[in-house]
Simulated scan of single mutants.
Amino acid sequence: MTAYCFWGMRRGSRFCTRSRLKEDRSARWRGGGCQTTALTLDRQSSQAVVLSASAGSPGDLFQIDIASGADGKLTGVNREYLDEHPPASMEKFSFERAGFGIECRLWFPPDFQATRKYPLLLDVHGGPNGAFYDSFNAVQQVLATAGYLVLAVNPRGSSTYGDDFMKAVLRDWGGEDYLDLMAAVDLVSERPYVDSDRLGIHGYSYGGFMTSWTVGHDDRFRAAVVSAPCTNLYSMYGTSDIGISFGEVQWGGSSFDAADELIKHSPITYAKDVTTPVLLLHGEADNRCPISQSEEYFTVLKRLGKEVEFVRFPDCSHLFLRVGHPKMREEYLSRTLGWFDKWLA
């Protein structure tokens, strides 16, 4: 009987899955604890080669026997570097809040000692229907290996946790999603090795929205890196390449029939309440979250006398952290780490 293979994602992990035609069930034959992003099969569909990244490795090729699920590692591209520069380690945990289970990943420095105190950074993913995975994340690795604890939360709105969970963020940006994140920070801050006087926050895209939203509603964070954000939903509606198709669904309407709601859910509305030093990072060729979103936020913060800096990345699109010039990506990581070192060291 003919079978087909496809990717399936569940709770921050990706699985290679096989199903037969006219059958309702499917079987996983690879995955869990990693993020697999490429697959090729031989002509008989009995052997596969996949590209998988784990929490401790940016990615390698693995050969898999589909019938048995047995696999073998084919490459060790970064072995020598990782031997000399140990990556951060990860702990996964969950907690219940307002009807949902919220899954978190906490990254530890390689030389972590429970008897010491460490600054804690909250990292917020994009989307809002993105997710943090069991995978190597350059931002989190750079920060954690520099001596920070990094908390990566999948709040309501994140994908891979079911439709109800993912849709719970619609028309509620900065509502229950924000409270999920703050609850996670509260929970981790109770641990004896967390220095709750040295908290920072970073986010890109929707994560940039949430970072700017957070510092306008909570003064406990001593440093914030706000990247490619949505800070003014009213103006973004008419300038983003998805302002209409995405915005009307996510934000609850247009700039002419839901103006009050767009303004209410815009971080720029609460700029006067910001006390956290803010670093803005934005690509000049970003059509998704136009750089005007950072320009507006920078202007207001500066006019209000807040601590703020703004770095523009020339010729960089919204995806430059994934596919942009390596120099620009290196600069982004360097600026991010430097900002936290300046205010939290």
Rank of each mutant, 00 (worst) to 15 (best):
A67G: 11
D186S: 04
Y193H: 08
A224M: 05
P314N: 04
D260G: 01
A144M: 06
D24E: 15
E296Q: 14
K272Y: 15
A223M: 01
I64V: 03
G8N: 14
E261W: 03
F108R: 05
E330Q: 14
R30H: 07
G101R: 12
S334H: 11
L181H: 04
V194K: 13
R220L: 09
L120F: 05
L181E: 15
R11M: 10
K327N: 08
I64Y: 02
Y118W: 05
W173F: 07
T275N: 15
S317V: 03
E331C: 00
P109E: 01
L333A: 00
S196N: 02
R25E: 14
N137A: 07
R11D: 10
P110W: 03
E309N: 08
R79A: 12
R28Q: 02
S94Q: 02
V124H: 04
L187E: 00
D42H: 11
V249A: 08
D197Y: 10
A144Q: 07
H217D: 07
P290Y: 06
H125E: 02
T276F: 14
F93R: 04
L199K: 12
E190I: 01
G174H: 13
M210D: 05
Y148T: 01
G252L: 07
R30K: 13
V215K: 00
W107Y: 15
N78P: 03
D241W: 14
V124E: 01
R97W: 10
G126A: 14
R20A: 02
L122H: 03
A38L: 05
P128A: 11
T75N: 01
G203N: 05
D177L: 02
D273E: 12
R222A: 04
E103Q: 14
T40K: 12
G162T: 08
R97N: 14
R14K: 12
